[in-house]
Amino acid sequence: MASDPKVDAYIASRAEFARPILTWIRARFHAAVPEVEETIKWSHPFFTLGGRPFANMAAFKAHASFGFWNRQANETGKEGEAMGQFGRIESLADLPDAAEVERLIREAAATLGEGKPARPRAAPKGEVEVPPELAAALAGDEAARATFDGFPPSCRREYCEWIGEAKRPETRAKRVGEAMAWMREGKRRNWKYENC
């Protein structure tokens, strides 16, 4: 059993009624899934598998709780009573027997990551329209134009949006002047924040 000293300290600092409950739950996780790892996250003991959140447990003034990260994997009907799927745990009698809890833990481990919808990919942004003021300035400056053309689309977009969002002509002219000076030096729009 690979235990984390921070979890030992957490259990030792809890109320007397909670210590045997937390110790028992912890033992069930290590018995059911020996490769489970322990840590403290959000001030509570957490179990992870392969670096992925798996389950957590906690103790409060009058009850303890534990539950699985993927709540849909093991619904018990007590989810609304307290944090986790097993409601308010005031004694070991409030939990299923060891064999049942270990079975639930193995099931949750087997389904870890299942049912999680794939994150949709953002549609690629098209090439941005170059503001007329910037286009005119670039036409008359070969060095700045070469830098601008050599930038990836995101860098060109930053300059174009920055100039295009200016409402007053004076502001646009000032931004075009700054942009041209920076591009002559080969600098991106946010060059001040690079390599910080």
Score class of each variant (00 low, 15 high):
Pro53Leu: 07
Phe66Arg: 01
Ala99Tyr: 11
Phe68Cys: 01
Asn74Ala: 08
Lys61Ser: 13
Trp42Glu: 01
Ile40His: 03
Phe66Val: 09
Ile105Gln: 12
Trp69Val: 08
Phe46Cys: 00
Arg71Phe: 05
Ile89Asp: 02
Gly87Asp: 11
Thr48Leu: 10
Gly51His: 11
Ala99Asp: 15
Glu35Arg: 10
Ala32Thr: 07
Phe60Leu: 07
Asp97His: 12
Phe68Val: 00
Ala32Cys: 10
Val33Ser: 07
Ser65Arg: 02
Ala55Thr: 06
Trp69Thr: 11
Ala99Trp: 09
Lys41Cys: 06
Ala31Val: 02
Asp94Trp: 02
Trp69Pro: 02
Gly51Met: 09
Ala31Arg: 12
Phe68Asp: 00
Phe29Trp: 05
Glu35Asp: 14
Phe68Glu: 01
Ile40Asn: 03
Gly77Ala: 09
Thr39Val: 03
Ala31Asn: 13
Arg28Val: 10
Leu92Pro: 08
Ile89Val: 15
Gly51Gln: 13
Thr48Tyr: 01
Ala32Asp: 12
Ser91Asp: 04
Glu35Ile: 04
Leu92His: 09
Ala62Cys: 00
Gly80His: 11
Pro96Thr: 12
Asn56Gly: 14
His63Thr: 08
Pro53His: 10
Thr39Gly: 15
Met57Arg: 08
Phe29Ile: 04
Pro45Ala: 06
Arg52Asp: 08
Glu102Ser: 06
His44Met: 12
Glu37Ser: 13
Phe86Ser: 06
Phe47Arg: 00
Glu38Ile: 11
Lys41Val: 04
Val36Asn: 03
Arg103Ile: 05
Ala59Ser: 14
Phe68Gly: 01
His63Ala: 06
Ser43Gln: 10
Glu100Asp: 13
Pro53Phe: 03
Trp42Phe: 14
Phe46Val: 06
Pro53Ser: 10
Glu79Ile: 13
Ala98Lys: 11
Gly67Trp: 00
Glu90His: 12
Leu92Met: 11
Ala98Pro: 03
Ile105Ala: 11
Ile89Arg: 02
Thr76Val: 08
Phe54Asp: 06
Ala73Cys: 11
Ser91Glu: 06
Arg28Cys: 15
Lys61Arg: 14
Ala82Lys: 01
Arg52Pro: 02
Leu104Asn: 13
Leu49Met: 04
